[in-house]
Write a protein that binds this DNA or RNA. Sequence first.
DNA 1: AGCACGCCGACT
DNA 2: GTCGGCGTGCTC
Length: 730
Amino acid sequence: MTQDSLGVRVVPVLVPMPAEAPYSYQVPPGMQVVPGSIVRVPLGPREVAGIVWDGEGGSVDARKLRPISEVFDCPPVTERMRRFVEWVAGYTLAAPGMVARMILRVPTAFDPEPDIDGLVLTNRHPDRMTPARTRVLSIVEEHGGDLAWTRSGLAHAAGVSMTVVDGLAAQGVFEKVQIPTRPVVAEPDPDYAAPTLSDGQAEAAEALRLRITDDAFSVSLIDGVTGSGKTEVYFEAIAAALKEGRQVLVLVPEIALTQAFLDRFHDRFGAKPAEWHSDLAPRMRERVWRQVAEGRVRVVAGARSALFLPFKELGLIVVDEEHDPAYKQEDRVFYNARDMAVVQGQLGGFPVVLASATPSVESRVNATSGRYGLVSLPARYAEAALPSIRAVDMRRAPPARGNFLSPVLIDAMRESVESGEQALLFLNRRGYAPLTLCRVCGHRFQCPQCSSWLVEHRFRGQLICHHCGHHEPKPDACPECGTLDHLVACGPGVERIAEEVDAAFPDARTIVLSSDMLGGTKRLRLELEAIAKGEADIVIGTQLVAKGHNFPNMTMVGVVDGDLGLANGDPRAAERTFQLLSQVTGRAGRTGKASRGLIQTYQPDHPVMRALVSGNSDAFYAQEIAERRRGHLPPFGRLAAIIVSGETKAEAETHARALRRAAPESDLIDILGPAEAPLALIAGRHRFRLLIQGERKADIQTYIRTLLATGPKSRGSLRVQVDIDPQSFL
DNA sequence: AGCACGCCGACT
DNA sequence: GTCGGCGTGCTC
């Protein structure tokens, strides 16, 4: 804290804009501020919320200084949160103000919720009774007599107008009291419904409980297949943290929390967790934020932005489905919420639990190297038998000409449908066909803006670019040679599979689920409910069927193209495919009935397929890890360079190919979205980067020189930052 | 990031 | 004659 020339106190304030450092503001005489105080300050033509920061304000022209307008009546941002903001800003190379903005993005939560005016019965009697007055008084008596009521609530309950209640209050029959605001959720009870755990689960739960009572920073990875009871196990860690009087954050990847998760939590703790995600109604958002800050909310389940809630006494973060790419934020401030959760744990000195049936390779490495604790759960045999998974070798059982479903798949579907059960077909491709070409001249329909193929959506009669959203009506004639009616669809999308299914099963009830479905989220939810109720026999879906929804009668899952995504040049291709297909095939087999997953593939010997079929992923992970030890990805060794390469992933891939050609033995490389490593010195325009790592800086410099000499000179997009270790916080 | 100012094209 | 596009520049 400093004083300006007139002796007025000046403090640094972090304002929500991309400045390098806090701005300085005067503290008007008589105003009390401490580091962490949330204040309203003038900023240019407007007023914004900012956070009083630590240390000295920078030197500014005294004439620029303006006074703080107001200190909000709100708990100050904790020391831990302030260090967290600085850490995230340093790591992601974002402006600290922009990180602070993520805490402050709750427009009106900084003022306390006003108490509600209530009425409570006195022992005075009304001058005379009327039927309406009798009703009011008997309603109050029925509820015990000493409860506080709101005017409108009481009038409504008694079925009378508010004037009746006002009349009684005027005679002193009621007196005014202040009702404190209602908590957004009831307090969870750690002893509400202690579960019966299997031996394996009990052992795992005990290991996590010990971490909690250690009261120190640690990271534990719970690795257990679908149905092994990970959730029950980390619930015990939550219970232990609650008993220690700490708050708990459960991070979940999806925007909307699945009802299933909330129900399970309620069953265990007798109350729901507070929810936090971007779709939350503004009023609820404020109340949750406020009550989290006050420590009234004990457990929050939320999307990645919940990491920036101002917890008063956070004592545990659980990251569910830790491998999920939805944890990456790739705009403004680029971060991976899973990693930042670990950072919070370290700064706050409390445990972090990562859970996944298919952990990310980096978490597996951290667990096997001992940096993270590993809690493995054996499969549970009893109620949730795993589906038997089989690879369908497409070379040996090919589909009929012009079709995409192998007879093996069709037979399995028929068996399920005929026995009154449901079948799910998974294909991660929207629309009818991913490529359209002219049979006469070979013209391929390409997006005019981003040069990817246009995907035919036959239902809508459009050709659509899935990259940028560009769309045009599908013409009858080739734009190149003008020939009519010779355009041909290449490859399958879900719409095309639906066509094939309709032909093979004309009587079955079929539903197609994809994110571009007409009718939006509401319709989707209805369809999911309908499916759960058994109102469909065959479901054909894209990625969104992989998530959380349970279909109790789904006994067969067919993956139409298991190889899709294995060969797209992404260094995480195998990992992602394994994770996605595990999840999809896991949709079957939660019923206790015998169930199966069939994966169509041309590479039945691929490590991913072997892992899926055997149910043992150790060899697969070992291979992935070995591959990366050969130099493909952090988190091994020190990340030595980030080469920024352009606006699109395609551009980054071009650079990567060039470098691979030029230096085939090099310690390459990954193409990463901005969340995965600090975004160097770079204006926000470059969104994808190559990472190069090596043992010695000299190696890196060689690679960079090679790339600069041979790589495409696309828009001068190569920039370099050296010497950042993304794991150095551990 | 947000917001104002500012300078050029089609319309109440 | 005005409304409105987004380029540039500034905010303690």
